[in-house]
Amino acid sequence: MGKPPPITNRIRELRESAGGMSQSALAEAIGVTRQTVIAIELGKYSPSLESAFRIARVFETDVESVFGWQAPPLG
């Protein structure tokens, strides 16, 4: 099993809470392609800070409610 991505997200969950918003609708709302939204959801691509804020704004929440960071152990 590969190591989990350092940046986690709740986008899929938030889309479902927002009445089943489609990936295409989210992509259009933040100005990226649907494939980029898929890559972000799967943790394959970490979005820019601007896109992270845009995603949070779409779901009317803050960035930390959408994204998490699993910090590596110190030392």
Partner: peptide, 11 residues
């Protein structure tokens, strides 16, 4: 539409 759009940050 896709052809007309500029490349996004990942692209």
């Amino acid at each position: 539409r896709e052809a007309d759009a500029p490349a996004d940050e990942r692209e």
